[in-house]
């Protein structure tokens, strides 16, 4: 059925006169100066109900512990083989009262019950971010799977401030996305939300209710300036 359907559909489309291909008009996405870029990113993602904390490359796990303590978080999922996952594990191992770490180290089929219900938060890295729309860019990987940023009620995302791009268009072009798209690329701009009930915003309808962005300072740039 499908094969015939395919040829009949294509035959009908080809029987129609092809339209002229319109020329690509000039359109340039917005660009920002270095100092605007960061501010724009923060303002936009905060407007979308995310929490932004500026952190240092070395001390962020300590900072995160106190942020999460205030939220009563007890079980945190991490990617055990990523740099962030390892750093978190190393620092929290020495901290009294740090939340328990749960590693996403097995396929979802094994971890599903835990993932779906028993995790309070997950910590992921990001590939980058977008200033224009206040957006995190994630390319989930075997080390850091897709559901980490989706199932737990809190998503903590580390963003290195030097990886903030002006726009999605600029990012895609600079990194030649079209040459090799990953299994899944996802843009995240705030916590999960809905306005389906009388246009009243409510968060966490399916995905995270809270999005915590840890914005990692560019210490080298800072040092160079000094």
């Amino acid at each position: 059925m499908s094969d015939n359907a395919r040829s009949r559909i294509l035959a009908r489309l080809r029987a129609a006169a092809p339209g002229p291909v319109p020329p690509r008009p000039a359109w340039t996405p917005p660009t920002y100066l270095a100092e605007e870029r960061r501010a724009r990113f923060i303002a936009m993602i905060e407007a979308a109900h995310a929490e932004v904390h500026e952190v240092d490359q070395t001390t962020w796990p300590v900072r995160l512990r106190s942020i999460l303590a205030n939220k009563g978080v007890r079980r945190v999922m991490t990617a055990p083989t990523t740099a962030a996952g390892q750093q978190l594990a190393a620092v929290w191992a020495d901290l009294a009262d740090a939340p328990a770490l749960i590693a996403y180290d097995q396929p979802v089929e094994v971890l599903k019950p835990v993932l779906v219900r028993d995790v309070d938060a997950a910590v992921t890295m990001t590939r980058g971010a977008i200033a224009e729309t206040g957006t995190l860019v994630l390319w989930p990987s075997p080390a850091e799977p897709r559901l980490m940023s989706l199932l737990p009620p809190i998503h903590v995302a580390l963003v290195e401030e030097w990886r903030i791009a002006d726009s999605l268009a600029a990012l895609m072009a600079d990194e030649s996305w079209a040459a090799a798209m990953p299994t899944n690329a996802v843009l995240i701009s705030g916590p999960s939300k809905t306005a389906d009930i009388e246009q009243t915003l409510a968060y966490g309808v399916h995905g995270p209710k809270e999005l915590i962005v840890l914005l990692v300072r560019d210490q080298e740039a800072g040092a160079a300036a000094v």
Binding site: L147, P182, N184, S189
Partner: peptide, 24 residues
């Protein structure tokens, strides 16, 4: 559509789960 700058999620799917990937 709704006057928001972007939706919360933009989900780009290019393949099923590949060997070694833990979900999808």
């Amino acid at each position: 559509a709704t006057g928001q700058p972007i939706t919360t999620y933009v989900n780009m799917i290019t393949s099923p789960r590949k060997p070694g990937e833990k979900d999808g």
